[in-house]
């Protein structure tokens, strides 16, 4: 924006129309309540008191696809349900985004080998934007997935150039810390600590002879 910035008095903000639309869009992602299985409970937990997905503007769960921007496919999709998933996706207005939540929707998960009725990944049915693995993923993981969607929205250029081809670089990253009893500035010592911890746990969990 360069030359425009700082030319006006305070409380006047300059931006491009595109950025303003993207900002509005990313701050009010309305997901559809689309709980299928176990992951739906974690999705509910994400929406409930402790994790509170409303902090990221995505707490308005809509019961109808017509009002939703984001489909969180939370749970196993089977062949009987696949047609419904596709129909619901088609009923959503553009621009629409899909999060595949959980191992089953990412690629069959634990039902891959013997699940005769399970779709091996929801991307065989609808296009997926963000995969959130885990069985089920923790609420933090779902929030991370939501932020990736928001990154994607921020890079949208549908007013000027259309959708960007490359995936945007994420603005945030889910870096975690190990607890102090497992971490050490010295990497060798840290590995020793972790091995000792693992050994101790294994001994504790060992069964007695019947």
């Amino acid at each position: 924006m360069g030359w425009l910035e700082g030319r006006f008095e305070e409380s006047v903000v300059t931006t491009t129309l595109e950025q303003a639309i993207n900002w509005a869009r990313e701050s009010s992602m309305w997901p559809m309540t689309f709980g299928l299985a176990c992951c739906a409970i974690e999705m509910m937990a994400t929406g409930a008191s402790r994790y509170d997905i409303d902090r990221f503007g995505a707490g308005a769960f809509r019961a109808t696809p017509r009002q939703a921007d984001l489909m969180i496919v939370a749970g196993t999709v089977n062949f009987k349900m696949a047609a419904r998933v596709r129909r619901l996706y088609n009923q959503m207005p553009d621009p629409k985004f899909v999060i595949a939540m959980g191992a089953c929707t990412c690629g069959g998960g634990p039902y891959y080998k013997y699940g005769y009725n399970v779709v091996k990944g929801v991307d065989l049915v609808v296009p997926v934007d963000v995969y959130v693995p885990g069985c089920p993923p923790r609420p933090e993981a779902l929030l991370e997935g939501l932020m990736r969607i928001q990154d994607k929205v921020r890079a949208m250029k549908d007013l000027t150039k259309g959708q960007p081809l490359e995936i945007p670089i994420p603005a945030r990253t889910g870096f975690t810390h190990l607890p102090p009893e497992l971490s050490d500035p010295d990497p060798v010592k840290a590995v020793e600590k972790q091995n000792a911890w693992a050994k101790r746990n294994k001994e504790r969990a060992a069964p007695a002879k019947a």
Partner: peptide
């Protein structure tokens, strides 16, 4: 049947201790 996940078929193909995680996912 919109969430039929073949648990009984899996049960007769894996050992009982391997089937325990699938029982979790029945009544989650």
């Amino acid at each position: 049947g919109y969430l039929h996940r073949c648990a009984e078929k899996i049960g007769e193909n894996v050992m009982p201790i391997q089937f325990i995680p699938y029982t979790d996912r029945m009544d989650y």
